[in-house]
Simulated scan of single mutants.
Amino acid sequence: MIASIVLVTYAVLVGFVVPRFLARAKWPLRAPGTAIALWQALTVSFVVCFALAWYHAIAPGRHLHGLLGSAEQWISGAPERTTADGLSAEGVGLLIPIALTAVWPAAWFIQVTASAARRRRRHTELLDLVGRTEPALGAVIVDHDTPAAYCLPGRPSRVVLTSGAVRCLSPAQVQAILAHERAHLTGRHHLLSAASEAFARAYPVVPLARAARESTAELLEMVCDDRALRSACARALADAMCEVAAGSTPKAALGAGGSAVLTRLRRLLRPSAPLRPITCFAILLLGAVAAALPYFISCGPVIG
């Protein structure tokens, strides 16, 4: 019971307290990739913590490592053997709450990714009818006066520009926006977006879920901005973002206009020094510890 209380307290801390401070922090603008990793680690930590708290509420006083030993024996075909804690293979059934808690967000992830894939397929079929491939740009051009740019992950992936964007953007701006979109594709950002969306749907009342979804969407755009700057100047990318910001992006697509355009523009035109590698490493280590800590609480002496 003590372990269950400790785990619930930790889940409240991770799910309700930490997001308020992290969402207001300024350092993620200087290291968006590191910030995304931390948000993902916190979501994993919350799910693991919730699952283990449920387990200890059902089976107070039982060490998790003993239960896992029983499960290993059962899988190996020795159900009559017991662990040092006296747990029989029948105790493997206590893993059900852990499994259900893990399956819940996983099921949402499957639903979100499957739904997005269907929408992308339909949109791809439409592009095959109304769009034209421009080999020089490596993009599909759609006749529309409103400047817009977005990408469709999948096989094959597509980068899409409207004819309005091609007309109003300079060659340098076009290349900058294309580099941004290709960064989405090479980074497989649709999977990270789906993970944060699935967690938000699985736990809609948890502040961590809402904050992680919103922050991940913004930070992914910043990651692509940084990648685009490797081959384009900041002014060209900023001007291109302003031009395509009003353009709509289909569901399941990732657009260069994206979210938090004003914040991204300030970040491009008034850049801050990136975080030092040692600081990024410390943040990533903190995220790893946050994700692993629930397990050590369960297997430690706190259970008694």
Rank of each mutant, 00 (worst) to 15 (best):
V17S: 02
R266G: 13
A106N: 00
T9F: 15
L229H: 05
P207T: 03
A200L: 10
C49S: 11
F50L: 15
E90Q: 11
V12Y: 04
G69D: 12
T113G: 11
R81N: 10
A198K: 04
F16L: 14
T263W: 15
R230F: 12
V244C: 07
G131S: 05
A23W: 09
L95Q: 05
A89Q: 01
L275Q: 01
T101Q: 11
F109E: 01
A139K: 09
A3W: 01
D85V: 07
D145I: 14
E243H: 10
A209E: 06
H65S: 15
A114N: 13
L191K: 06
I75V: 12
V159A: 09
L13E: 01
A148I: 07
T279H: 08
L191S: 12
V289W: 08
M1H: 10
R20Q: 08
T279W: 14
R230A: 02
I278W: 14
P204A: 03
V159E: 05
R120V: 01
V302R: 08
Q111C: 13
S193P: 00
V8S: 12
D239I: 02
V44N: 13
G33C: 05
R119L: 14
H63F: 15
L94S: 06
L284V: 10
S115N: 06
E197G: 08
E221K: 00
A228Y: 03
A117Y: 07
V166R: 09
W39D: 01
A136Y: 00
E221G: 06
G69F: 14
R227F: 08
R167W: 12
G86D: 02
V140A: 11
R24G: 12
A234G: 02
A31L: 08
I2V: 13
H56Y: 12
L269A: 02
P19Q: 03
L152S: 01
W54Y: 14
A252Q: 05
P32H: 07
L42V: 01
A252W: 10
